[in-house]
Amino acid sequence: METYYDPQDLDKFETIGREAPGLAKKFFDYYGAVFAAGELSEREKALIALAVAHTIQCPYCIDAYTRACLEKGSNPAEMTEALHVATAIRGGASLVHGVQMRNIADKLSM
């Protein structure tokens, strides 16, 4: 193994069911149902997945959902905006904890 992440491995995802086919089937059935059009369109769901993929920094997911977003009709400007939503939440989550920092600092300070 030369690298931990090989793009070819993405195509082997389904083989993950080899040792636990029942659980894999439940997972893939659920996965398929989640991404089917519902109250949200398949395009909107792919954009959410792309943003989450960057948040969890999964190379497989970034590869798969970049392709999926393009195939569902999203363009790079929309995809970039989706990433900024994830980035804003991620950065905001750090920043909002500053309130805790202030609470503690205020309590300890004169």
């Binding site: 195509d11 995802f13 893939f28 792919a46 798969a64 999926a68």
Partner: peptide
Amino acid sequence: MTAATRGR
């Protein structure tokens, strides 16, 4: 991942 890879 499966959305892009699970075609028959």
